[in-house]
């Protein structure tokens, strides 16, 4: 990533009120190609709203959003439940708003490790499979920017890690920018370049380690979260060679390791 930073979306001084409630107060951020930005904050912090503003789906009351011209975006919504009354196979889902060829569809399902799902009903997929299929669908748009709103919901712990690694792999191979929304920095940490901690205003921003030590972050998420986080990165370095062990650590265990470090 030595190439010059190619900015995809820049936002500054965003303000947005809905009714009487201030949703965004003086929010700004910048995302470049090849970068994973994690947007973290408690429920109701305005994360999804901010993304909608960044994508141009919602107009801010004031402030500026600059998107790269012709920016193509792949989007994974926060929730994706298809009613059982609607018959929908993965194949039809992939062809919902575009017309990819069967080869393209298979290639993209392969890329996300979800081959052989093409003719399965969408409703029969597991949480992890569903996210992979949605990721493949987003990749079919050949996106310069991937926006993933809470991608690990309804995915089991093993699957969560695999999913994050997959996202990092996609970033490495395609060089696209990624905006990841999460309410838990815990797992995202090792896979992210920049963290923006949002609670209607920007609490803090920077590299994950710096953010995890920031007083505003600690005030928002508690010392406990920060501790397990610190250990988590430590532990991650430790087990980096052997795959599959980067799992969330039990609180006791976490403190124990922390003391020993």
């Amino acid at each position: 990533m030595n190439e010059a930073r190619r900015s995809l979306v820049t936002a500054a001084n965003l303000h947005l009120r809905i009714g009487e409630t201030t949703i965004l107060h003086d929010v700004g951020l910048d995302i470049s190609a090849g970068e994973i930005l994690t947007l973290i904050g408690p429920n109701g912090a305005g994360k999804t709203t901010l993304v909608r503003v960044l994508l141009g789906l919602l107009k801010p009351d004031s402030g500026e959003v600059r998107r790269k011209e012709g920016l193509s975006v792949g989007y994974l919504p926060q929730s994706f439940e298809v009613d059982h009354s609607l018959p929908l196979t993965v194949r039809r889902l992939l062809r919902l708003t575009q017309k990819p060829s069967p080869e393209e569809m298979e290639a993209h399902l392969d890329e996300v490790g979800a081959r052989n799902l093409l003719d399965h009903p969408v409703q029969s997929l597991s949480g992890g499979e569903r996210q992979r299929v949605l990721l493949a669908r987003a990749l079919l748009r050949d996106p310069e920017l991937l926006v993933l709103d809470e991608p690990i919901q309804n995915v089991d712990v093993n699957g969560q890690n695999e999913l994050y690694r997959l996202i990092a792999k996609i970033r490495d191979e395609r060089g696209c920018g990624v905006i990841l929304i999460s309410h838990d920095l815990h797992l995202v940490m090792a896979f992210t370049d920049q963290v923006v901690c949002l609670n209607r205003h920007i609490c803090c921003t920077g590299h994950p380690e710096a953010v995890s030590k920031n007083p505003e972050y600690l005030a928002l998420f508690g010392k406990h979260a920060a501790e397990s986080l610190a250990v988590y990165t430590h532990k991650h370095d430790h087990v980096h060679g052997s795959e599959g062990e980067i799992l969330p650590i039990e609180p006791e265990e976490a403190r124990h390791h922390h003391g020993g470090a």
């Binding site: 994508l55 789906l57 975006v73 989007y75 919504p77 926060q78 994706f80 298809v82 609607l86 929908l88 889902l93 919902l96 708003t97 748009r141 926006v147 709103d149």
Partner: peptide, 14 residues
């Protein structure tokens, strides 16, 4: 209509 029936957020993002 089909796209927004499947997922409204996704449809509007697209």
């Amino acid at each position: 209509l089909l796209a927004l029936t499947v997922n409204e957020e996704l449809a509007s993002a697209e």
